[in-house]
């Protein structure tokens, strides 16, 4: 199989990055989940590149597991949550949209500065993709900070994870399939536990607004 053109990779990375940005902008929970699925799909494509370069059974299993968790299990749980608790809209953000965009731009610009310059030598050609994935990480982090909804925070963490995975791919770091499986399993458990927690939060607090949780302040 011929290697995939760098442009394609860059395009995928831009998709991942944009998904993170749009996660900031969307107000509907269902579209946020869809954005995450789209992002995960892009990450899965990226994952396939090395998998198909040197196919092996274990590697394929790992890949399938990852795809299954990110594209099937996660949305299943999330849509289930949304349906059960009728969570159409995510709870509001701290900052309004223009300021949010401004900060996203600042964070993205920050990843292009001297501070992250050393990272570019990791990938000979794909330094823009590499830095974009770093930007994805920072923006996802900001998403968690900006959003008051528990579900959005969860999606932010998953998006952060996607950013890290894409960074690893661009930096040419590959894990052994065993590790890959382990990490995927970890994420699966995480998603399950977090989903259970969100349900419990909803039961306890009547909403997913995490700002309601401010009793422990000493």
């Amino acid at each position: 199989m011929r290697p995939i053109a760098p442009q394609t990779l860059l395009f995928l990375e831009i998709a991942i990055f944009s998904a993170a940005v749009f996660l900031h902008l969307t107000k509907k929970n269902s579209s946020a989940v869809r954005l995450y699925v789209a992002q995960s799909a892009a990450v899965s494509f990226l994952l396939m590149v090395p998998a198909f370069a040197e196919p092996s059974a274990l590697l394929l299993t790992a890949l399938v597991a990852t795809v299954a968790v990110k594209l099937l299990v996660a949305p299943y749980f999330f849509f289930g949550l949304i349906r059960r608790h009728r969570l159409r809209f995510s709870v509001s953000t701290y900052l309004n949209t223009p300021v949010t965009v401004l900060i996203i731009a600042a964070l993205a610009a920050f990843t292009q500065t001297e501070a992250f310059r050393p990272l570019t030598q990791l990938a000979a050609g794909g330094d823009r993709s590499l830095l974009l994935s770093v930007a994805t990480i920072m923006i996802s982090l900001f998403l968690i900070i900006n959003r008051k909804g528990a579900l959005s925070q969860m999606l932010g963490i998953l998006s952060l994870e996607n950013g890290i995975v894409s960074f690893a791919l661009f930096a040419g770091l590959e894990q052994s399939p065993g590790l890959q499986l382990g990490i995927t399993f970890n994420i699966l458990i995480w998603i399950i536990i977090a989903t259970v927690f969100i349900s419990m939060i909803y039961r306890q607090f009547g909403s997913l607004d995490v700002t309601a949780m401010k009793r422990l302040t000493e």
Binding site: Q153, F197, M200, Q204, F205, M213, R215, L216
Partner: peptide
């Protein structure tokens, strides 16, 4: 509720 709050903060 407080235990939930603590656990959620811990998790996230």
């Amino acid at each position: 509720p407080t235990a939930m709050e603590a656990a959620w903060k811990y998790l996230i």
